[in-house]
Each structure stands twice: as structure tokens, then as C-alpha cells.
Computed example of a mutant assay.
Amino acid sequence: DKVAIISSGFEGAMISAAALLILYDAVHKAFTSEAIESVGIGMILTGAAAAVNLVLGLSLLRVGKKRNSPVLRANGEHVLADVWTSVAVLAALGLVQFTGWRGWDPICAVLAGGKLLWTGWRLMRESFGGLMDEADLTVEKELRDLLYAGCATHQLSYHNLRHRHSGRTHWVEFHLVFPDETDLHHAHEIATEIEAKVASLLGDDVRVISHLEPRSAEHQEERWELR
């Protein structure tokens, strides 16, 4: 899982490097007057490549989000980066041909380079967060809302909620506090029901662990928590 996260960050670094090269080339073109040749053929070939890459990139993103795969999402972003580059080229060629002003070429290149630089930075930032097991605040709120509703239904309480992403897997752990007179079998059924709701909320690859404890022992610290 960590290898997948590192791979995603590497994809982001590659996109960022490409963005910097595009920006450098844009600045160079702004101070030179290079002729643009084969505009018609270039637009046709670039448009065809952009269409193919758009379908491929969106498919990779969709599957990556569905399977919670950072590698597939990063590959999708990488392919879509090529789409943005192609769109910038098409826009530059069209504007230069229509207006006759070559300044559109570096302007479109700067816009494309800026977009790619942002995409690369975002992938590297997400990769770093994954390596550090950074908590997702949106998921945190959804989990707390679900646990609060589930506990209210069965007149329980919860504490010690912990969760983190590790590659494709989301790990969740929490303590459920039951009245002392609750039958163990009944408590297990309730805990299993709440665990299933948590798993349904977060997707397919989820590991949910609940710790059951009586209300009289709610504030007692387990030895493993003191490590």
C-alpha cells in the first residue's frame, strides 16, 4: 500500500517537472519569434490524441476512485495532463491562425503549465498525507455522525474513534459502551450492525474493529492504550 502511495507521489513529481518545462519553453517563446508550421495537420493530430487521452484519463480516474487506488488515480491525472497540454496547443494554434498574433502561443502554454503544476503538487501533497496516515476531516465527520445516530438508536455511547487510510484500505476502530445489564449476544449483534454501516459508508476495502465495554468500565484505561 505504501508503495502505491509513493508511486502516486512520483507521478505528481513527473507532472510537476513537465509543467516547469512547459513554463520555461513558454517564457523562451515569448522572447523569440519561431514560426508555427503545419497548423492544419497539427490541429487534427493533436485533437485526435486529446480525445483518446480524455476517454482513457476519465476511465482511469473513475476506476481509481471506485477501487480507492492512488496509483490508478495518479495515472488518470497523468493522462489528463496530456489532455490539458493538447487543449493548450489547439487553443494556441487556433488563435494564432485566426488573429495572426504569435503571442497566444506562450500565453496558452503558461496556462497549461500552471494547471499541470497545480495537479502535480496536489498529487504529491496527497501522497505525503497518505505516507503520514493523515486523517480525512470529511470522513471524520461522517463517521461521527453515523456512530452518534447508531448509538442514539440503541441508547449507547462511543469513544476512542480512530481511523486512517493505508493505500486502498481504510482502517476504523472505536469503542462502544453498553449498559451493564446488556446480554453479550445482543451487544455483539448491535456492534456488528454498526460495523456494517461503517463499512457501507466507506466502501469496499474497509477494516472495522469495535471494542465492547460495559458502562461501569467506560473510564478505565486498557493497558495497551498506555503504551
Score class of each variant (00 low, 15 high):
29 K>R: 05
17 A>C: 04
109 A>I: 15
172 V>I: 10
88 A>R: 03
104 W>A: 11
17 A>H: 01
7 S>A: 11
82 D>N: 00
52 V>C: 10
96 V>C: 15
135 A>R: 12
101 W>A: 09
72 L>D: 03
209 I>D: 01
219 H>C: 00
109 A>V: 12
28 H>T: 07
73 R>E: 10
86 S>A: 14
114 G>M: 11
47 G>L: 14
114 G>L: 14
150 G>C: 14
70 P>A: 12
216 S>Y: 02
51 A>W: 02
202 L>P: 13
78 H>W: 00
203 G>M: 01
138 T>C: 01
119 T>I: 08
32 T>R: 04
194 I>Y: 05
216 S>L: 00
14 M>E: 04
40 G>E: 10
125 R>A: 09
75 N>G: 15
215 R>C: 06
207 R>C: 02
42 G>N: 08
208 V>N: 07
184 L>N: 03
53 N>S: 00
3 V>C: 01
43 M>C: 05
182 T>S: 09
31 F>E: 05
167 G>L: 05
110 V>N: 12
190 I>Y: 07
30 A>W: 08
120 G>W: 02
177 V>C: 09
19 A>D: 07
25 D>G: 00
34 E>R: 05
187 A>D: 04
66 K>N: 11
56 L>W: 10
212 L>W: 06
222 E>W: 00
58 L>M: 12
215 R>D: 07
208 V>I: 05
192 T>V: 01
138 T>V: 07
94 G>V: 14
79 V>I: 15
218 E>F: 01
202 L>A: 09
24 Y>F: 06
42 G>Y: 06
28 H>D: 05
223 R>H: 09
91 A>V: 14
139 V>Y: 11
97 Q>A: 08
117 L>V: 04
